[in-house]
Amino acid sequence: MTHLVLDRLTRRFPGAAQAAVAGISLELPKGALLALLGPSGCGKTTTLRMIAGLEKPDEGRVLVAGRDVTALPPHRRNMGVVFQSYALFPHMSAAGNVAFGLEMRGVARAERAERVRQALALVGLEELAARRPRQLSGGQQQRVALARALAIQPDLLLLDEPLSALDAKLREGVRDEIRALQQRVGATTVFVTHDQTEALAMADLVAVMNQGRVEQLASPEEVFERPATRFVATFVGRAARLSGQVEAPGTIRCGEALLRAAETPATGAVEIFIRPHHVRPVAAAENLLPARVLRRTYTGEVVSLECETPAGRLLAELPGGVPEARATAGDTLSLGFAAADLRVFPA
């Protein structure tokens, strides 16, 4: 069941040449987690702020559970927001912060205390209820912010880069915690991030954004394996980029080699993306190229080989155990990849 609808949402900041958000439309099912993924300045935070009502769209609508909330001020939207800075009230205790939203809703004192306790228990911070934000670690502050947003039983949970202020060590754990919590509570969630790993690991749906537009809206697997545009292919994950010319549909001339691809434009110059993990040392494949190893990078679990082929430079990522992973600079291998694994875009 569709819970959140963005309908041609647009925001132009005065004086800016380009719209910060240029007509975004998407739908999100109830209970799902959507990641807005993109580089800084792509409009992802502006989109989140428009959903929360903190920014007024110039055009378009926001619908929650079928209701048009575009004209509502933030205090009447019932959305739980976790800010990048957490925005905890420094003059209130953790419990006071969590109670604030309930107090604003006129929840009676006794029920309020119980719901505050539950919300803090949900994030495992019952014991620290009396602490002020300054007396809490970054991770604890983050969980208070999450408890505060969830305590009001929001129609939507909105997270603005909630992990960016945390230590790299903490980030992965908190990421999984947020995801588990979100699924347990069943909160429909929009999550803003510039970190593809975060987006891929947490989201049910990823919207890859660039210059105010959604380049691709799909599952994490789809975004990673089948990027819809050149931008998505470069922004998400690593890939070797080759340039070529379509000779016939399905066949591309690439340097001295001919490559077969599942989907190509009918004609013209193209850019080809090949993910390193799709490149394998094999004897037979739809595309088979002799490759000379230029550089070998050992990272434990995988070995990256940068190779020179007749089609251009290829990156291959091999599991540490396979015999080919022992190749060193100067060695020659036979590398193959499937036609379906090539992503081809008009250059």
Binding site: P74, F89, F100, G101, I152
Partner: peptide, 25 residues
Amino acid sequence: RDLEEAAWTLGATPLRAALRVTLPI
């Protein structure tokens, strides 16, 4: 500013956010 915005999203009218959050701080 985001303290006030947080108060709004939690259901505080702009006046209440100003009185309960901004003014005490």
